[in-house]
Computed example of a mutant assay.
Amino acid sequence: MKYFYRLLISLSGCLIFLLLHSFLGSLPSLAAEKVTFRYGLFEQSIPVADIRNYAEKQKVSGDLQSFLSYFSTKEKQKFQDALQVKMSLDIVALDKLINTGMGKQILSFASGAIARRDQATIQALRSAIILGAKSSEGLGLISFLEAYPSNQLVVDVSKISQLVSMANSSFSSADVPPKDNVSSSPLGKIALQYQILAAQDKQFLGCLFGDSVSAELGNTLGSGTFNFGLDGLSTISLLEQLKSLIPAKVKCEKAIIAIGGNDAWYEISDELFSKNLQEAIALVRTMGNKEIFLIPAFYSTVAASLDPTVAAPLSKVERINVLINQVAETEKVPVAATELATLYENNILKDNLTSDGDHLNAEGLKIYREALLQILKK
């Protein structure tokens, strides 16, 4: 039962991530009043209002308490952090994306985890996404649920494992450390395709290129900026990303490259990392660029660094940062390190700024966002 509840939390992130890249049509604007997780004859229902109340005021109802009681303190914090994610999405780009073959395939696949008595599952999901994205707070888990055109959203847990497997397909669980193949994973491909459609023929005052830590910020750096962060990104996939964006005539006056943690985790060689980073800088300079800033690779906590399935050893991250400084000196670009110093203590991520030891929680993201804004204002 404990594993079952933990799997439900995995679904919350995976399912919504898949659905973020889908759009079309509309249905009567009803709203889901509760979410029901179904596994065979077993069902657990949680009122959507209780979830919002928990997100905004951290008040826990009886129904939600029975759900959260199976989780550790850190897992509860991760769930709370997920509820704070609210994404501002380009509706036109989403419209185009859903009409691609991969967009239709992923939406259809994701709909398999939703149980409905009629045949309108895909249409209902599309409606919830557009209405949720149009809400004043942007698209997030709560706005999606509140826009779902039925009084109940029923999730079939027996099909969750397929979604989780798809979401994690960029890495093989047998690989420690994992291998970088973001550009060949379904989610990596569709995320990049969304970026191309949303940024095509546009000029931005500031662009952020980075991994999952940067991706968690969403497009919250202000008007005229774009966050090109992708989960799992290393310098290998960064080159593929840039080579896809350049033909789309994406222009960036200022660019921040926040990369390196995954390179350390994937055990990419010093020579390859330096070569890739130099090539990435050269490609960014062809995008109408006036200034480039590098950010040191993100450190994790000590505990996370000791688990090869979670993060790279701190010594390897430190080595990557030495290489970043060397490349910066060669390429004559600044390394913005002082702005991020408050995230760390002796090059170790502070426990109160992370929920999993490797990524930033809401408070950590606030500090990171402010640091990026300072850099862009230079």
Rank of each mutant, 00 (worst) to 15 (best):
Q326L: 04
A312Y: 08
V310S: 07
S274Y: 02
T301M: 08
R319A: 11
L283M: 13
A304I: 01
N262W: 02
I292M: 02
Y299I: 00
A297H: 04
T309G: 05
I292D: 15
A312Q: 06
I281A: 13
P247F: 01
A280R: 13
P296V: 00
S269D: 09
I292P: 07
D307S: 08
A328R: 13
V322W: 01
A258M: 01
Y299F: 14
A328N: 06
K290W: 00
P313M: 11
P308L: 11
T301I: 04
I292R: 09
E267V: 13
A328L: 13
V327Q: 11
E267G: 06
I259K: 03
F298G: 12
A264P: 09
V322E: 14
N262I: 08
Y266T: 12
K275P: 14
I246H: 01
S274G: 10
N289F: 09
I324W: 15
C252H: 01
N262T: 07
D270R: 07
L294P: 08
S305T: 02
V322P: 11
A328W: 04
N289R: 06
Q326I: 03
G261E: 07
W265K: 15
K251M: 04
W265I: 09
I257P: 05
A248K: 09
F298M: 15
K251N: 12
V284E: 05
P247E: 04
I246P: 02
C252N: 08
K249G: 00
V284T: 03
V250C: 02
A258T: 03
I257Q: 11
L245M: 04
K254S: 11
K254Y: 08
D263E: 00
E318H: 15
S300F: 02
Q326G: 06
A280N: 11
A255P: 07
E318K: 15
P296N: 09
N289T: 15
L294R: 02
I256G: 06
I259E: 06
P296Y: 00
L306F: 01
L314H: 08
T286R: 06
N321G: 10
N321M: 08
F293G: 06
N276R: 00
I259P: 11
Y266G: 07
V322Q: 15
L294N: 13
P247H: 01
K254W: 08
S305A: 14
K316M: 07
N325C: 15
K290M: 04
V327P: 01
L283R: 02
D307A: 11
D270K: 07
P308K: 12
R319D: 09
A255G: 13
Q326T: 10
G260F: 01
R319W: 01
D307N: 14
